[in-house]
Structure formats: structure tokens, C-alpha cells
């Protein structure tokens, strides 16, 4: 393990970012914080795509996969926020553990 930057350094950062995102998704009660955790996870996946593409001969296919991830993240954020707004209108809260009408 040297301090000169190589592929491993990038994917270590992305691994830590991924587990931070998992922690946010698991612990936060606010639905918007859960969405922010999902954005962290998607960003860490993107770092991996681009890092592997750079260190495997600058192949551009990894960049395309990352662009599709960004597309889908934008769609997911728009639809999820619309659903969260509807939940807020209906239940007057966005805490994911209080919206349990279907469970009762």
C-alpha cells in the first residue's frame, strides 16, 4: 500500500462512501434523508465505474454506464419526491416508521 494514487485509492473512497450511504438509509427516519443516502450509494457506484474504466485502458463504456446511472438517479429523485409530497399531504409526516397504515 503506497501513498501514490492508484486504482485502489479511488475504490477505497467509494467503499467508505457506499457504507455511509447504507448507514443513512438504515437509520434515518425522514424519507428525504433516506433519498440522500441513496444518492450517496449511487455516487459511490459511479466512482467505481469511472475508476475501473480509467485503469482498464481508458475504455469509454464505463463512462456510459455511469451516465445511465445518473439518468436513473434523476428519474428516481423526481418520482420519489412526488410520492413523499403525497405522503406528507395524506399523513402530515414524512417519517418512514409512522407511515404504517397498510401494516395495521
Amino acid at each position: 500500500m503506497t501513498f501514490t494514487v492508484s486504482l485502489n485509492h479511488f475504490i477505497f473512497v467509494s467503499a467508505i462512501l457506499f457504507s455511509l450511504g447504507i448507514y443513512a438509509v438504515l437509520t434515518r427516519r425522514n424519507a428525504i434523508m433516506v433519498l440522500m443516502g441513496i444518492e450517496l450509494i449511487l455516487n459511490s457506484a459511479n466512482i467505481n465505474f469511472v475508476a475501473f474504466s480509467r485503469y482498464a485502458g481508458m475504455d469509454v463504456n464505463g463512462h456510459l454506464a455511469a451516465i445511465f446511472v445518473i439518468f436513473l438517479a434523476a428519474c428516481e429523485a423526481a418520482v420519489a419526491l412526488a410520492i413523499v409530497l403525497n405522503i406528507y399531504k395524506q399523513f402530515n409526516t414524512v417519517n418512514v416508521d409512522e407511515v404504517s397504515t397498510m401494516k395495521d
Binding site: A15, I22, L26, R28
Partner: peptide, 21 residues
Amino acid sequence: SGTMQTLPASLIAALIAGLLC
């Protein structure tokens, strides 16, 4: 905004980070 189940979640997150690294 509150948090819940911090202990098991931090265990899971640390496990994932260690495993991946």
C-alpha cells in the same frame, strides 16, 4: 430528524466497509 436502530445499522455498515476494502 431522528435516527433509529443506530447500533445494528452501524455494525452492518462497518461490516460492509471492511468487507469491501
